[in-house]
Every structure is written in C-alpha cells, then in structure tokens.
Design a binder for these strands. Structure first.
Length: 403
RNA sequence: GGGUCGGUGCCCGAGAGGCUAAAGGGGAUGGGCUGUAAACCCAUUGGCGUAAGCCUACGUUGGUUCGAAUCCAACCCGGCCCA
C-alpha cells in the first residue's frame, strides 16, 4: 500500500486508453495516501443482462487494481436507467425490466464480478441509482439539463453518427449522460472507470460535478475488447463472447479460436503478464503462435477456475481437436432400443435443431456414428448403449438405453 | 398539418403480376488445407415429409385477379422537404 506514487501510476495506467487527467490522478493518489483516505472509484453497471463476459472484465480488472492499492470500488446499478429502457444502442426493443428482474440480475452480476473484485465491505460499496434519481423533481431535472447545451450533447459520436445517418435520436436520450453524470455527484466519485464507449458520459460527469460545486472526478477509459470474430466489440448479443461462467473446456477452446493478431490485445487486457513478456510471446520468431495461445488460454481459464482446470482444458483440447479423439465428457441421452432414422436420432440428442439441418449435416458428411460417416439421413439405426454420435468437429452425444 | 420517398429472409440489398422459398453481398454453419489462427477453395443457409408434395414468409388488414412481395384501399412505422 505504501508503494510509491509513480509505481502506482504505472500499474493504473497499464492498458488504459486515456486518463483525464494523469496529473490529477497523481495528485489525488498523493493526497489520499497522505491523509489515509480511500478514493471512491465509480463504475456504472447496466443490469439488463446479468451474465458478464471477458469484455466486462477489462474494466473490472482495472477496478481490482485500485482496490489492491487500498481504494474503494463503488458499483452503481443503473436500475433507474434500465427501467426507462436504454435506447442508445442498435437494440431499440430492449425489454423494460421489473424491479425484481433487475435485482436478480444485479445479484448474478455480483456473483460473477466477485471472481475479479475484492468483495469485502471495506473495499466494495454497491448502490442503486434509483436511490437518488427517483427523488428528483422535474424542476431539478430541468436545472440539471440546463448544465449542458445541445451543441455539447451532439458532440458525442454516437449521437453525431446517428444524426448524420438519419437514425432516430430521441429527446430523452440526451438525459442519459446527465443522469449518469448526476450519479457521480451523488456518490462523490473520485475516479470513474469505463470503456471508451463511455468516454463522453463519464466526462459529462466531470462537468456536472463542477456545476454542483464538487471536485471533478478523474476519468479512465479502457479499450473495448474485440470479440471472437476479431472485428466487433465483444457482446452477448453478437455471440462473439467468452463468458466468465463458461466451462473451462469452452473457455479454452474459444481462446484458441481467436486470430493471432488479437493475442497481444488479449494478453494485455486479460492477464497480468508484464509487457516485455507479452512482446516475447507475440513475436512469432520467438514463440510459436500456437504455444502462445495455449498459454493465453490456460492463463485465462486459471483466473476463473484454477491451474488444474486450465491444464485439463488444454489436454482436452489437444485430445479432441489435435488428435481428433473423442472427448471424455460426452453428454448422454436416454433412448429406447427402437429403430429410428438418423435424422430423428440427431434431433433426439439435440445435435441439430431441425430436421433440415440434420439432412444438411449428413449431406455435408459432418455426421458420424461410432466413428463411421453417415451420409443418408434416412438410414434406420437401432440405438445401442454407448453408441457415440458426432456432428461437425465439436458436437458429440452418447446414447444410453432406457427401459 | 401538407408533400414526397420508403418498410423484403439473421443483417444489407435486388425484384415492379406467374419462371420467386425470393438475385447478389455479409454473416453463420459444414467440408478441404491448417495450429478449431489468418488467407484460400468447395458447399449449405425457412419448417414438415423417405419422397411426390404440403405449410409459413416480403410492415398490418382488407380488396382486385385463375394467380400478388409485385396492382388498389385503409391503417401503422420511419426518412427527407414545407408549415
């Protein structure tokens, strides 16, 4: 804790995109250390979807570093915001959640975030922004809105972009940054963390705090983690994510599927390895890319499980994909010993979701039963105990007879 | 409020009465090559049916026609222009 300020700054700056401003951060850290005060580090959460993925962990990991340096994480659950329905994204038909739903999501979120954060009450504080936002009168809202001009608002690129493209921007959307900014006032935040997509909102927080006569928070932005497809932001709705609750085998496999170019980014944002080591690992002349990726996969799995699970996942991967053998843990399905078509069989074992897909998979020689390729979806098969089915490279099922 | 243009499959986008389950991309999936990397090549991409075929689908609801994504009407939603 008594580490030098320069040392602390180095840790805190790692992986960030921008710090507004570094000088202020150094100042706050120094002051905090001198009087023994915990800085209040704000992070706003959207409780609309409870499951968190590695994209969220980039910011959470930064939060953890602050905690480890003795500061307090203040998580704000945007329950009030969520109730209005956040229109800022592509997804305009987001369901409006009930208070119970939000509470439940928040709990799930904590359980998952707890894998990264220090959850002791000394280091973590949680609040719901309805606590103060629901109290505001219209007059107070108007006064809040009077702090920013329209010209300032449309600086935000998501607004600008949509206006240029002729996509709707609703009036109340302008209130979102203001509400979030007001959150900073309510909790007296010293530092706010967020992805670069939150830069505008978080900076508004500075202005609002100033307008309300408070010291301004420092804003630290973290990169948006690219998803598995290598181009888009990691997100649940795009399906290009690694969830923190993914099974070790899955987690490892997903890491293995990222492109070589993305490794450096993942190493930097998702592990604590020093920059020099990362440079070695991502230099193909020094480390074979595949080896580096295995290490990345193991490191990530170990973070959420443990070393043993990480090794097991790597071994499983090697067994199934490198040596193309059957995995050890194949889901079992109970079936009676009555003949049925391959199509029905695949459906029954949930290896395909429609009969058409079953036909296609057969036609494309992706289907094997006990290691033998099946190309006719109408062949009659009598289930036998221990019979194994495979569709594609990674979908397996084992049959168990029911009596 | 007026004018005008538009709403097509997961997404973008063509189609302007039958040849349309609907061109072409993108994405996704399967196969090949590999390191479940990239690049590249091939294939598939509404549901049911062994099949013939049937059903559902071009904003919504009605209508005209032997036949409509395509024509007409009303309505809903949006862009742009005018007030």
């Amino acid at each position: 804790m008594a580490e030098k300020i320069t040392e602390q700054l180095k840790i805190l700056k790692r992986g960030t995109v921008e710090v507004f401003t570094e000088a202020e951060l150094a100042e706050k850290l120094t002051e905090a250390q001198k009087v023994g005060r915990q800085l209040r580090i704000k992070l706003g959460l959207d409780p609309t979807s409870p499951d968190i993925h590695l994209g969220h962990t980039v910011v959470l990991r930064k939060m953890r570093q602050f905690q480890d340096l003795g500061h307090k994480a203040v998580l704000i659950i945007g329950d009030y915001t969520a109730r209005v329905g956040d229109p800022s994204g592509q997804n305009s038909t987001r369901p409006i959640l009930s208070p119970e739903q939000i509470k439940q999501n928040a709990e799930t979120y904590f359980a998952q975030a707890g894998k990264i954060l220090d959850t002791s009450s000394k280091k973590l504080e949680v609040c719901y922004n309805s606590e103060w936002l629901a109290e505001l009168t219209l007059m107070e809202v108007i006064q809040l809105a009077a702090k920013k001009t329209i010209a300032q608002m449309i600086q935000r690129d998501s607004f600008k972009l949509r206006l240029e493209k002729g996509i709707d921007v609703y009036t109340h959307e302008f209130l979102y940054p203001l509400m979030q900014g007001y959150d900073s006032v309510a909790i007296k935040s010293d530092v706010e963390l967020g992805g670069t997509d939150q830069t505008f909102n978080n900076l508004v927080g500075r202005d609002i705090q100033k307008a309300y006569g408070q010291p301004q928070q420092i804003v630290i932005t973290m990169p948006i983690l690219v998803g598995l497809d290598g181009t888009e932001k990691m997100s649940k709705s795009k399906g290009n994510y690694i969830g923190v609750t993914d099974e070790p085998n899955d987690m490892f496999g997903k890491v293995m599927s990222i492109s070589d170019e993305m490794m450096e980014n993942y190493f930097t944002l998702l592990t604590d390895l020093p920059a020099e080591r990362i440079a070695e690992l991502t230099d193909a002349s020094k480390t074979h890319p595949k080896e580096a990726k295995v290490l990345l996969g193991k490191t990530i799995v170990a973070q959420f499980y443990d070393e043993r699970a990480a090794d097991a996942a790597a071994a499983h991967f090697d067994q199934v994909f490198a040596q193309k053998q059957l995995p050890d843990d194949i889901p079992e399905f109970e079936l009676p010993a009555e003949p049925l078509s391959v199509k029905q069989l695949l459906l029954a074992c949930k290896l395909v979701s429609t009969g058409g897909e079953a036909k296609r998979m057969c036609a494309q020689s992706a289907v094997a039963i006990d290691g033998k390729k099946i190309t006719d979806p109408n062949v009659q098969i009598t289930p036998k105990s221990g019979m194994t089915l495979q569709v594609g490279k990674r979908k397996f099922a084992k049959i168990k007879l029911s009596n």
